[in-house]
Amino acid sequence: MQEQGTNKINCNKCKYFYITWEKEFPYGCKAMGFKSKNMPNRVTREVSQRQCLSFEPKDEPR
């Protein structure tokens, strides 16, 4: 898990992040179960005033 406050979380590097087919809500987070117009970490920070606590790095390709 990434430490809070020391690094900005990059949703693109999280295993729960995905791109949807929906034009209105192109970004999604499987861990928190929502889709949005903005990156999930940005929405999380706006709502909870905290960094995302669900971040887990994607598995490295072999």
Score class of each variant (00 low, 15 high):
27 Y>I: 02
57 P>G: 08
17 F>D: 00
58 K>L: 14
36 S>M: 04
36 S>I: 07
23 K>N: 09
51 Q>W: 07
51 Q>Y: 09
28 G>F: 09
37 K>R: 10
46 E>F: 08
37 K>M: 11
22 E>R: 11
49 Q>P: 00
6 T>H: 08
1 M>K: 14
22 E>W: 06
12 N>K: 13
39 M>A: 09
38 N>H: 12
31 A>V: 11
53 L>D: 14
19 I>Y: 06
18 Y>I: 00
34 F>R: 05
18 Y>L: 05
55 F>A: 02
56 E>N: 13
2 Q>F: 03
3 E>T: 06
53 L>M: 12
45 R>K: 13
58 K>P: 08
7 N>H: 09
7 N>M: 14
53 L>Y: 07
19 I>P: 02
48 S>M: 10
35 K>I: 12
7 N>S: 15
28 G>Y: 10
21 W>C: 07
33 G>N: 15
36 S>A: 15
30 K>F: 02
59 D>G: 04
49 Q>R: 13
42 R>D: 15
35 K>W: 03
60 E>H: 07
41 N>R: 05
8 K>W: 05
24 E>A: 15
5 G>W: 02
59 D>W: 12
10 N>Y: 06
59 D>E: 15
42 R>N: 13
40 P>K: 07
26 P>E: 06
32 M>Q: 06
23 K>I: 10
11 C>D: 02
39 M>Q: 10
2 Q>M: 10
18 Y>P: 00
16 Y>D: 13
28 G>V: 07
43 V>I: 14
57 P>M: 11
5 G>D: 05
42 R>W: 07
27 Y>R: 05
37 K>T: 08
39 M>Y: 15
28 G>P: 11
21 W>T: 15
15 K>G: 04
22 E>Y: 12
2 Q>C: 04
18 Y>Q: 01
29 C>W: 00
43 V>S: 08
3 E>F: 07
37 K>S: 10
58 K>A: 06
43 V>G: 07
42 R>L: 12
23 K>M: 07
13 K>W: 01
32 M>F: 05
